[in-house]
Design a binder for these strands. Structure first.
Lengths: 243, 243
DNA sequence: ACTATACACGAACAAGTGTTCTGTGTCAAG
DNA sequence: CTTGACACAGAACACTTGTTCGTGTATAGT
């Protein structure tokens, strides 16, 4: 039947979606390798291949040899996405009149003895809880702000992470981490949540406390550990200054 | 042309203009060299120099090491150009932003071994340094925001206050404190700055570390201790989230 | 006169990034 | 079965782009 012409494949669609979201969020387009990562394609050449097709079909345009020069010409509409996007847009518009401030939903408390209430990957949870307002300039500029959520720390069990009772931690959901990142992990054998710096070593994982005077934990079996998210920020407020 | 302070120079203005026009036109931001050509600057380093100034003053934001990642935050109004839409947008942004977000000047670093650079009560020190932007909703409602200043913690010497290297602490100058407040004090006999909870007891002052596992310090003679300010907030950022 | 600071150039460097080439496997048409 | 279009990986390459460093100049303040 030799058709290929008309329909965009799933890949094409995912690229377009990623493109629009990325540009919306950061104001500039992703690199080829970033696109590859996002749509799970290993080689830059293949991304280029798809990009050329999209360009040929006038979905995007790009400038030869210029970095991050992709423009979206025809916004693609996946019915579901469009809706959720509008909702989150609206939410964002309401809570943050300006782009310079964002409101991060406060999802609950984080306690050592129970798993943290990670939002379902279906985010868009936007709702009744209170939010923590943070200037965007305080966050890494690339941060995907609509994934972020905040938790209030309960109890003193995380002092080895330099985190105190009442502190607020801002995190981003994640299942994996890179070396050196501060993550919230659930340890199966200890039955607890903890905050540690993450380091993958040869056949084990080292969890290093932020407090330099304390010793690391080693986890030999990857299955004994579940990464719940990466810590983006910690905020401690001293309210009592009003007297 | 010897000028430095607040006002943007002609160069700054030209850069902002070029930036907004370019982005408007192409949908992505120009490279440093392109900016240099446009404003007649021969060296990339000088463009970088101006760009850093603009970033510090929150006119733009950009991503380290990422090509063409400049975003315009505050549209500049060149009397001639001013696009009417941008004006009203900007006007609105300014008015709403101004009271929901405040910029706290970053005065320097706080090190255990030296007194903190408390601003002279002559506040009007106003900037040239960079600021830490914080949503007003995170501060106690009665806080006198124009007295606040921020310091970046240097070194691990304050881990007993649950404060780490690189943390940012927001404080308000003060010479006295009430019980239970977190203060920055200079200890004459030890020759160091430290952060502790303040408690006045019968004939002495108890300085209690935030870390509940550590022991307090007692100061018998009030003159051996100088309160530099009250801690309002501590912020810890984890930058390394490069996905 | 001396110093500190802001402004400026240019070159070298390193990282980011797009392009190209070679090779592999799949699948449907001939 | 063979062929050829297609989807894909990987690596090498080359160009683009941001960063850093050494140097120089002018001006203001001491």
């Amino acid at each position: 039947m030799a058709r290929k012409k008309e329909g965009l494949s799933e890949r094409h669609r995912k690229i377009m979606e990623y493109l629009t979201e990325f540009i919306e969020e950061y104001g500039y387009s992703p690199s080829i390798r970033e696109i590859g990562d996002a749509i799970d394609v290993k080689s830059t050449s293949l991304v280029d291949y798809y990009l050329n097709q999209l360009e040929e079909r006038k979905y995007i345009s790009r400038e030869g040899r210029i970095s991050r020069s992709i423009r979206v010409l025809q916004p693609i509409r996946s019915a579901t996405k469009a809706l959720s996007k509008q909702i989150s847009d609206a939410a964002q518009a309401v809570t943050t009149a300006v782009d310079s401030i964002i409101s991060i939903p406060l999802r609950g408390r984080i306690v050592a003895s129970t798993p943290i209430p990670v939002p379902p990957s279906d985010f868009n949870y936007f709702d009744s809880e209170s939010g923590v307002e943070i200037a965007r300039s305080l966050l890494p500029a690339r941060e995907k702000i609509n994934e972020l959520f905040a938790l209030e720390v309960q109890g003193d069990s995380m002092i080895d992470a330099m985190v105190n009772d009442g502190d607020i931690i801002v995190m981003r959901p994640a299942q994996q981490a890179s070396n050196g990142e501060m993550v919230a992990v659930w340890l199966d054998d200890k039955d607890e949540t903890t905050l540690k710096y993450f380091y993958k070593e040869n056949n084990r994982i080292r969890l290093q406390p932020a407090n330099p005077t304390m010793d690391p934990i080693y986890v030999e079996n990857t299955n004994d550990l579940r990464i719940m998210g990466k810590v983006v920020m910690v905020i401690r407020q001293y309210k009592n200054t009003v007297h």
